[in-house]
Amino acid sequence: MTKQNPHTQNAEVDMNPMLDIVFILLIFFIVTTSFNRPTALDLNRVKENKPSLSQTVTPQFQITNDNQILLNNKVIDAQSIAINLARLDANGEITAISVAADKESTHNTLVHLLNEIKGYTSAPVSLGNLR
């Protein structure tokens, strides 16, 4: 017969409650942590002004006292205003248009000229008198 030592015991440690406590603490710290996004300054960057390859054109119309229409000091037909603007637009971008009418010219000629201009382009038009 063998004798058993009365002082030896099988000691086992149950780690399940310890793991539960660790996971509960981990969840607590994750939930209570505040996540701050780093703040940055908003920059308003200046858009680069790329030099345009085309030149700018400013057509100058004149209406004489006998209702002739001149474009850059050359007489043109009242029906070919849009065609002449297209020709100038092919040479460069139309940025503004100048119109000067004689005091003796008729209102219909001026209105026809303005309608033709606005029918072709949306460039700003400045009005003036010849004399």
Rank of each mutant, 00 (worst) to 15 (best):
A101H: 02
K74Q: 15
I81T: 03
D89R: 07
N73V: 06
I76C: 06
A40D: 09
R87F: 11
Q4M: 08
T95I: 11
N84V: 04
M15I: 13
A86P: 00
I94D: 03
I117A: 01
N129P: 01
M1F: 05
N72Y: 08
L130S: 02
T39V: 13
V31Q: 08
R87H: 13
I94T: 03
L26V: 15
L127V: 06
N5V: 07
K74E: 15
N72G: 10
G92T: 05
R87K: 15
S126K: 12
L71Q: 11
H107F: 11
S126H: 04
V13H: 02
M15C: 05
G128Q: 07
I24Y: 07
N72A: 08
H107V: 11
L70M: 15
I27E: 00
L19R: 07
A96G: 03
L113Y: 02
K50N: 09
A101L: 03
D20E: 13
L127P: 04
Y120T: 13
V13L: 07
K3M: 04
P6I: 13
N67W: 07
V13M: 00
G128V: 05
Q60E: 14
P38F: 10
L88E: 14
L71G: 05
N65W: 10
S122D: 15
K103Q: 11
P6G: 03
E93N: 11
L88I: 00
F35H: 02
H107K: 13
Q4T: 14
A96H: 04
L26E: 06
P38G: 08
T58K: 05
E93W: 00
E93C: 01
T32K: 02
I21R: 14
N10T: 06
N36G: 07
V57S: 08
M18A: 07
T106D: 15
V22M: 11
D14V: 09
N108H: 08
I69P: 00
K3Y: 09
D20Q: 10
M18I: 13
T106N: 15
S52G: 12
G128K: 08
P6V: 12
L114Y: 06
L130N: 00
H112K: 13
V125K: 04
F23T: 06
